[in-house]
Design a protein around this nucleic acid. Structure first.
Lengths: 71, 71
DNA sequence: GTGTGACTTCTAGTCCGTA
DNA sequence: ATACGGACTAGAAGTCACA
């Protein structure tokens, strides 16, 4: 249990670093709060599908890509 | 917006029908409530990642599979 | 630029019923 | 076997001050 949100958080962070964005920049682009982004990346938040989609769109990746078991 | 939860709901329903399970059976296997399953399948609920994972495990599919754009 | 705890508001999620 | 409604409780959303 709670494996998916760990993987998701790691994927978001990897992609954000790849784009060389700060959490603050991703926050602005996704419409979410800066601290919330950080919490999601660390897997401490049980994020909902709507917010996952907002992040995926901001990161310009399909949502399924952020949940792949390998990555 | 809210496209992902529609796709997710459809995928869950398709897979459940494929397994020939009732909503009630999926509810028992996933540990979620029967009425909630129905709402998720219809896309009226903004489900969290932990529960998405619970459904994916009950349905014996990787979570990413339930979110694919095509399917 | 990020991590963390705490806080309030709002909705996810349950449980009852009826159809 | 599923949809839908109301009422309720647990927990996510969203924000902040401070490290």
């Amino acid at each position: 249990m709670a494996k998916a949100r760990i993987r998701f958080g790691i994927s978001v962070r990897q992609r954000r670093n790849q784009l060389e964005w700060s959490q603050e920049e991703l926050a602005e682009r996704s419409g979410l709060h800066r601290t919330y982004i950080g919490q999601v990346e660390r897997g401490v938040r049980n994020i909902s599908i709507d917010n996952m989609e907002a992040l995926a769109e901001a990161l310009m990746l399909p949502l399924a890509e952020l949940l792949r078991s390998d990555s």
